[in-house]
């Protein structure tokens, strides 16, 4: 080893290393923050889908969850949901109880007697189709992507099933299909939109608590709903820019 120590000293090592590190920094400065978000809202007047859910109108019937499973051939076992309903109960002792038995499909029970309840409500959950979706950002092969209409989709013939997007979704909206070995998630019933049909969950809601539509069109039902109601999104602090807006969202909901 080490025949010519004179040629390479520790100083050389530091020089080489810092040159290398400097190069990396330089390259990233040339192109600042460019590759961070996987999706970019397309320019122009195309559709840009968004969803609004009115918690005041939700009766927790879970028809949305049921029809979604049928329409999209989702496994019947209670571990795979594109769409589910949660029941929040906050007691007079400020205890927060959340439940979602089989995603709400099996019906809900109140865990505490009515006189002990401070407030209680249902929260339907589904993919937020985030504008800066963390799930499409981390997909190593580009099998998870945001369509030009702002719908987060999975190319199941290309997905390798690594599960990285499942980890990256803060809302728990993705799962690995145990038979196909690929990831599966809400498509906003992309196949129905093309036929001019409403997504199955929107169609199934008996109280019209769920609205979807084009956020680019400021006169669309969803845009007007968001304008007229005081809406909030889930986990805003993560800057995923969800396009699912909740009316009357309590701060206990994560």
């Amino acid at each position: 080893m080490a025949i010519e120590k004179k040629n390479f000293s520790r100083r050389d090592f530091i020089k080489h290393t810092s040159m290398f590190a400097g190069g990396v920094v330089f390259v990233s400065l040339m192109n600042p923050m460019k590759v961070v978000y996987a999706t970019k809202k397309p320019e122009g007047k195309g559709k840009w889908y968004g969803i609004a859910i009115d918690i005041e109108k939700c009766i927790g019937c879970a028809n949305c969850a049921r029809t979604c499973k049928i329409e999209n051939d989702v496994h019947k076992e209670p571990f795979f949901f594109r769409n589910w309903v949660e029941q929040y109960t906050i007691t007079n002792d400020d205890e927060i109880l959340v439940s979602s038995p089989n995603g709400g499909i099996d019906g809900f029970e109140q865990p505490v007697p009515e006189e002990d309840i401070y407030k209680t409500f249902f929260v339907p959950k589904m993919c937020n189709h985030c504008a800066k979706s963390p799930c499409t950002q981390v997909c190593p092969v580009g099998a998870s992507f945001e369509s030009p209409e702002g719908v987060a989709l999975v190319d199941q013939t290309y997905c390798i099933g690594c599960g990285y997007c499942v980890q990256a979704c803060p809302y728990g909206c993705r799962y690995i299909d145990p038979e196909k070995g690929v990831v599966d998630k809400c498509t906003l019933c992309y196949h129905r939109l093309k036929d001019g049909l409403d997504p199955a969950c929107m169609m199934a809601c008996p109280t019209h608590a769920r609205i979807y539509g084009d956020l680019n069109d400021k006169e669309s039902e969803v845009s007007l709903f968001i304008k007229e109601h005081n809406c909030a999104v889930l986990k805003q602090q993560l800057n995923t820019v969800p396009k699912l807006y909740y009316n009357a969202l309590s701060q206990e909901v994560h």
Partner: peptide, 29 residues
């Protein structure tokens, strides 16, 4: 371990052929 854990292990080559540049896992290859 990573490859044998995949749901579709034989598609792992996609990570090198069409790496998605915003993904930490793709660059790892």
């Amino acid at each position: 371990p990573l490859i044998s854990h995949l749901g579709q292990p034989f598609r792992f080559y996609e990570m090198l052929i069409t790496p998605h540049l915003t993904s930490a896992m793709a660059i790892f290859g």
